[in-house]
Structures are given as C-alpha cells and as structure tokens.
Design a protein around this nucleic acid. Sequence first.
DNA 1: GTGAAAGCGCTAACAA
DNA 2: TTGTTAGCGCTTTCAC
Lengths: 336, 336
Amino acid sequence: MVTLAEVAQHAGVSASTVSYVLSGKRSISVNTRQRVERSIRELGYHPNAGARALASSRSNVIALMVPLRTDMYVPVMMEIAIAVATSARAHGYDVLLLTGEEGPDAVRRVAGSGLADGMILMDVELDDERLPLLRETDRPAVLIGLPADTAGLTCVDLDFKATGALCVEHLAQRGHRDIAVIGEAPAVYERHTGFAERTLDGLRGRARELGLGLLHRPCEGGYDAMAVTLARILDERPGTTGFVVQNESAVEPLLALLRQQGRAVPEDMSVVAICPEQVAVQASVRLTSVAIPAQEMGRLAVEQLVAKLGGRGGDEVVLIAPELTVRASSGPAPAR
Amino acid sequence: MVTLAEVAQHAGVSASTVSYVLSGKRSISVNTRQRVERSIRELGYHPNAGARALASSRSNVIALMVPLRTDMYVPVMMEIAIAVATSARAHGYDVLLLTGEEGPDAVRRVAGSGLADGMILMDVELDDERLPLLRETDRPAVLIGLPADTAGLTCVDLDFKATGALCVEHLAQRGHRDIAVIGEAPAVYERHTGFAERTLDGLRGRARELGLGLLHRPCEGGYDAMAVTLARILDERPGTTGFVVQNESAVEPLLALLRQQGRAVPEDMSVVAICPEQVAVQASVRLTSVAIPAQEMGRLAVEQLVAKLGGRGGDEVVLIAPELTVRASSGPAPAR
DNA sequence: GTGAAAGCGCTAACAA
DNA sequence: TTGTTAGCGCTTTCAC
C-alpha cells in the first residue's frame, strides 16, 4: 500500500505539501504540483479513507436510508437511490445504503460513528419515528417526502397538493363533472404517508372550488381488487367519466377492466395517472399523467445536503412543481 | 464526541480493555465487562469508524456495484440490493452503493482507498470490463451473475441453464411439441449477458433431447413490440402451444394479446415465465413460473464475501437450483 | 511557497 | 486478566 509519506519522499517534498496538492487548500508552485502529481501517478497512490476521516473528521460519505416497505413502488425508490448515488459522486461523496431493517437505531449508529457526514431519508412518514433522533443529532439531514412537522428539517418532494389540483383541473377543463380517484392501498393511508394525503387535499380542494363531484377510494393493486373497487365506484356514481389514479399496480387493471366493460378510453372515460413516466408510457393506453420526478428528487436532495455540509443553506422545504403530460388516455367528457 | 479513552477513564480501566470488551478478542472478567458496558451506555459512546478503520485496516464496509442498465428489471435489482444490505448488517458490515456511472474506476478507487473491505458486483456481463481490475486487486469480491471465465472468482447466480431445461420439461410433460421463447430485449443478448444466454442453452439443449420444436425471439417490452413478435411466431410456427417468457415487460402484453386473439390460457396456450414471484402472481393470469430468487442471491453473495473476508472459503461458483411453481397459466396441450 | 510536528481515536503487539 | 504504548495515514496549525 502506498502512503502519502512515500509520495512525499518520491517527489522530494514534505507530507503536508502532498496533502495540500490533494486538497487544494493552499497555493502550490506549478513545479511542485507537477512533481507531486507525477509521483502520485507513478506510485499509484490512493488516499486512505479511514486516515482521512480520522484526521479531518469528515468521511465524505452520505447515508441513504431506504425503508423497505412492500407497498411502495420499487422502481421509483431505485431511481431515486441511483440518482442520489450519482449526484453524490459528482460532489465527491460516496453513498452508504441503509435499509429500514435496523430501524431508527441506524440513525444513531451512523451519526455517532462518523461513518457518514450527513443523511438522506426516503419514504418519510407524516409522523416518522426517525425524526426525533434526527433532531438530536448534529449531522445534517435531508428528507425525501414531507413529515407533518418540518420545523428544523430540510425536505424535498414533489408538490403533491399541486399535483392533485392539476389533475382535477385537467379533467374539469375537458368537461368532466364527476371524478373518481383510485388511490394507494389502504395501508398507505393508514400509515399517514404524506404524499398520499397531500394529493388528496389537492384533489378535493380544487374539486370543491370547481364544483365537481369527487369520490376517493383506496385500492390494493391487482385485477381482483381493482374490479371490486371499480364496480363500487360506478355503482355509487354512475355518472363518473374521469379517473385519477395514484397507484401503479392499479393502472393496467383499470384499463383492462374498462376495456372489458366496453368503455372506451378516452372516448367514454378519461384517465389521468400520477405515476412514473415509464409506467405512463408503457401502459396499454398511453396515459395522460403527472410524472414522479425521481431523478430530480434524488439530485435535489443531494444538493441540499451538500449545501448544508458546506455550511451553506438552512432548513428549507423544496417542492417540485408538477408537470402534466397529455397523452392518449384523456379527452373531452362524452355528451350526456 | 465521546472517545474510547473517556469511556476507559469513566470505567476506571485502560483503553485497551475497553477496546477488547468491544471486540471480544480477549477474555474479560465479568465485573470489568459490566463496568465498561455501563460506562459505554451512560456516556452514549459510539466507536469512531475512521479511527477503527485506520488502526485495524478493515472498514467493515462492503461495496455493492449496481450498474444502471435501463433494460434490466429494476425491482429485482432492488430486491437483491436490499437483501445484500440486510444480510451485510447481520454480519456487521455496512454497504456502500456504487453505480455504474463511474465505470470500472470505482473498483480501483474503493479498493485503493480502503473504503470497503470487499465488493459485490451485480449484473455481471460475460466479458465484464470490471473483471481484470478485480483480479489485480487483493480485495475479495463476489459476483452476482456468471462471466465467461470464472477462474479465480466467486460467483452466485440462479442456475439459468437448469431453469431453461426445467421450463421445457414442464411443457413437454404436458404434451406440448412446439415451444416459443419470448426473450429479453435484443440489447441484452448483444451485450452477452450471461443469464440470457445460459437460459437459452438450457432451453435448446433439453428441447433437442426431447425432440421438441423451439423458436427463440428476443423482444423489447411493451404491447407493440410483443404484438409484432407474437404475430411472427404464430406465422412461422402455427402449431405453437407453449410459451416460455423471460422478459417481465412482455408478460402482460403477451397475455393480453392471446386473450384478444381468442386463445385461452391455459386451454389453448400454455405460458411459463421466468420472472420474480411478484410478477407471476400479479399477472392477469397467475403464471406458472420459475422465480428469480433475488433475496437468496443477495444473501448468498454476502455470505460468500464474508467467508472470504474471514479467510475462509475460496473461489467458488454457487448456482441456485431453480424451482418451478405450477399456477394457472399452463396445462395439457390441446388435442390436435 | 514549503516544512515540521502534533494529533485524530482506535487496535494490537508486548509486558506484567 | 489487565495495562502500556507504538503506530495506522492523514490533516492542519504553526513556523519559516
């Protein structure tokens, strides 16, 4: 193993000079810098992460906590995680992957050991059990998702309230008067996951303002559950012509069932989805949708965290504005 | 920040004693152990990861490299990653998440810096560019997937060849004589990804042995691509009654198209899938399938790596035996 | 612009 | 069973 001291000797300079060449924290003559860089290359030197962490008390690692909830749509989680890892590297950080298994203790362990300089928490609940610990810690943290109380916390999320409102507006503009919302599995609401409730707020608020009928039904994924849910909706509100779906595993079943029942999309029924771009594009009917900006969420979370680690930027709630893309699944309401 | 020295003082022992209580590397009197443990608790001590890594030259971190290929089925990747993280914790290791972004250099960086003690590589190609670097390094590594040359490497994977054979056998036993294989996207084969080719070997080998007709067609995901592929297959081999599908995003389109064309599953056509359990169960027809044992792959990979890190176990290829679960999508071939 | 040297907090001989 | 101590490789103050 090559050490900094060996590089220094090889280049004929002191250890501190090599260190400063590496960190750029003080000016070095061009000559010296080149000699050092050459030695580094020739010897194949890599700074030791442990020694560096010990001496500088910064690990250049950020922890990413991914609770493993089976009812969350996995590809989005993964996309965020990858975006976090990639953006982190661009800022000189590595990413430590923590699962929910360990529970809130992971926060304590990682913060206490100095394994990571800061952390990003995904899939945050409204009343998340990790938050109290987080507030105790002095390590900077960024949440992806909004808890009920954001005081003293930095959060990044899609503006789900605006998203709900946007979906209702889209349908209202096309003349739909009765809208049904197919939501996430009941468990998601019971857990008081922020995004689901905020979406609902947005949907209901705008529906009220525009005087539309709105029926909301949580739904487990799959064909059977969707069949039951759809039957109930059409039974209670036969005049329903617009659907807003916020549940990836209900999308295709809904389309199939409507088809089966001879209801054409978008001629008889319009469907707007809140889902990842990929799901919207690959569905059997290309879906008008508001995309989940997974990449941007990951990237923004890292940028916020890096800013905090650098002493810049304080607590902030960063909401990403929703964008609705019109595709083949929505159109004018049918004449009565 | 509480240090080991402070704990030692508080407990009235020397630093090394505290260290040994923590590591269990030498026997400690019950009395002393309890006093130390009490001090640790009272002071809220957490060992500093950097100092530990520096002194012991082991970081207790394993790196997980996840290349981000858009044509790989993401939930499986995620499931493996989570299983790796969880099993790693159970062995006292944390997991560093590396994406493909950085390319093979990541191997050099992580190995050189001592950031991780060993690494697990996912989504290994037959002729993977990371392998030469890996062989240079002295850090233990485990691959998930099989490269062409496994010499000096430890690999964990589903036995895809046996999987292919198993699928053909299942259909043959039920009287099917002409089988079509819907494969992964062409790009997957072009990249010479091991699992796709090995599956094909197994399929072809057993079909030959049993004297069955076998047609293999790669297929991009989605409805349109599947429609084209299916039409061609039925055109070339009108007598086809059995399908083997190894492409998550072709499963539902295939079922929908068969339905549309009035071909009942399993009465007219049998379908066997090679896919994650979840996909098989959630499909519109519950699929007879060989599951991708993602969790087990992750777990085994960690166990192999931990064994190597502990100086136990050498290079080995660990193949997981496939298990075929019969569900509603396969049955006897229709009478001619 | 460069060097010397004191730690950072822990582990693991070596001693007792 | 326990203590003493010499580093591990790097960063950073202080001095020139």
